[in-house]
Simulated assay, not measured.
Amino acid sequence: MSAPSSSRTNLSDLIRDIETSASADRDLAARALGIVRDGVITGEGPTTEGRVHFSRAIDAVDVAWCMRILNAMAVADLPVSRAEAETLFQINEAASERNDDGRFDDLFAKAIVHHAASASGLPVPPRSVALSPDTAIESWAPTQAIGVNIEVLEWIAAQMRGKRRSNRKLMALVATLIGAATLPLIALPNVFDLGM
């Protein structure tokens, strides 16, 4: 079953707007990521056309859609927004099957940390650098809690809590930052479920 043509047009319009617009609208990028999420969940829709795609699976093409959206011209110079980060958390949770050689996990961790650092007022590199598979997250991510907004860390921890799929790299960075922020170590299990 193919997606209605309005979905295709909607995605085409969103992609065109975020790839060619001079004015930034991260909400459009979050909406486009939502279409990728829907394709991951159902295995159908404009991001899955022309290929076999199983529901609840993510593959290299899905990751390429995410990269294309997150690095589009209209948002390239902006930090990853909360709406974009929330949609990436939803994609992460929806994709129980991974056929992407770890590419989504890498992108996901980098995008979430990019959001956390920028929302805390810390400098972050442009998305094209920070989200690149060729850039190590450790080369730019904060390693100390100095200046990191605790509310942002708590939000990330709440997104991770109780999820069946965890991202070890993201969990390690968050645990390091929370620990450095002098939260008692005993509180860590309450921040997120450490069972992996």
Score class of each variant (00 low, 15 high):
Ser118Ala: 15
Arg16Gly: 01
Ile58Met: 09
Asn99Pro: 00
Ala32Cys: 08
Glu44Lys: 13
Asn92Glu: 11
Leu177Lys: 00
Pro126Glu: 14
Ala30Leu: 04
Ala85Pro: 07
Ile137Gln: 06
Ile15Thr: 10
Arg165Tyr: 09
Asn10Trp: 15
Asp106Gln: 08
Met171Gly: 05
Gly179Gln: 10
Asn167Lys: 01
Phe54Gly: 05
Asp13Trp: 13
Ala145Ser: 15
Asp13His: 13
Glu138Thr: 11
Glu84Leu: 04
Ser166Val: 03
Trp65Lys: 00
Gly179Phe: 09
Ala32Leu: 08
Pro46Cys: 04
Phe54Pro: 09
Asn149Gly: 02
Asp134Cys: 02
Glu154Pro: 01
Ser166Leu: 11
Thr87Leu: 02
Ala64Trp: 01
Ser6Trp: 13
Gly147Cys: 10
Leu177Met: 01
Ala94Glu: 06
Arg98Phe: 02
Met73Asp: 14
Leu131Ile: 04
Ile112Phe: 02
Ser120Phe: 04
Ser118Phe: 03
Gly50Pro: 00
Val80Ile: 13
Ile91Val: 15
Gly34Leu: 07
Glu97Arg: 14
Ile18Asn: 08
Gly162Met: 11
Ile112Cys: 03
Leu11Pro: 01
Ala111Cys: 08
Trp65Leu: 01
Ala180Tyr: 11
Val61Lys: 08
Thr182Trp: 10
Ala64Ile: 02
Ile112Arg: 01
Lys163Asn: 00
Ile35Met: 12
Met196Phe: 09
Asp13Lys: 11
Ala119Ile: 04
Asp38Thr: 15
Leu70Val: 01
Ala172Tyr: 03
Val61Gly: 03
Glu97Trp: 12
Glu84Arg: 00
Arg98Ile: 05
Pro79Glu: 05
Glu154Thr: 10
Ile91Asn: 03
Thr9Asn: 14
Arg68Glu: 03
Leu33Gly: 06
Ala187Trp: 10
Leu153Ala: 04
Asn167Tyr: 05
Leu88Thr: 03
Thr20Ser: 10
Leu185Asn: 11
Ala57Arg: 12
